[in-house]
Design a binder for these strands. Sequence first.
DNA 1: CTTGACCTTCCCATGGTTGGAAGGTCCATC
DNA 2: GATGGACCTTCCAACCATGGGAAGGTCAAG
Lengths: 131, 131
Amino acid sequence: MNIGEAAKASGVSAKMIRHYESVGLLPPASRTEAGYRQYGEKDLRTLQFIRRSRDLGFSIEEIRSLVSLWQDRTRPSRQVKALAKQHLDFLDRKLAELQSMKHALAHLVSCCHGDERPDCPILEGLAGKES
Amino acid sequence: MNIGEAAKASGVSAKMIRHYESVGLLPPASRTEAGYRQYGEKDLRTLQFIRRSRDLGFSIEEIRSLVSLWQDRTRPSRQVKALAKQHLDFLDRKLAELQSMKHALAHLVSCCHGDERPDCPILEGLAGKES
DNA sequence: CTTGACCTTCCCATGGTTGGAAGGTCCATC
DNA sequence: GATGGACCTTCCAACCATGGGAAGGTCAAG
């Protein structure tokens, strides 16, 4: 299976597959005589694992850990759960940050007439006037 | 006022002040004979405007527009509101994305015992098994 | 005059991803 | 057997916002 097919089948772009290999997240793929990378079922499962991890927002380094835990059939699930919880906390912090941005901006927007007149509570708020 | 003082007073780092100037978000600061950048009250207000905009998550390009709207005392507030609403939509999309990550991950985490045993629904979920 | 805290410009790094250039390979069609 | 298009290879650069650090100049206090 060429890299393009592996990309389609896994949902990871060919560009990123090469990148993941270059940073050691994936083992070097075997090559044809012409130098084309070849992928099999096992590689595909790893690629899908990586894609799902990225879909949940894990960083490359976290995924590196996840993959190695995944491949160690004797790891305690405690370790995986700890890693996942840590990421959950990260997501919560990000969410809180975005929520507070959203609320502050929504407030300003709700104060603005949005018509032809130049008075604008949004700009006034950004300029520092207490709304 | 030197760049360091302006940085402290505005909450924008000296590094970023120089960067904003280099990308044209700020007009070139006046200089002392020795080449030190000098800032006055007006510059400070602009810096604070920029910092508040960044705190709300606006991009540099959006802030460029906001600043120019701010400095045009005859702009219709409609334009500002449109820009703000567009960013609000962006924030909503980001929030939804993070929420769905959070919920999916929280589900997996809640399924995992997190003890010494190797069975781990989190890894199984990432590997693609339906949970 | 020295010292330390500031300032200057310049280049590099981050993280995840994409784009493109320049060149090689594979396969089907003429 | 040549041609063309779709694939592959590597390498380099960009995005965004920010920070780190080097090498060197300046300022003010002791």
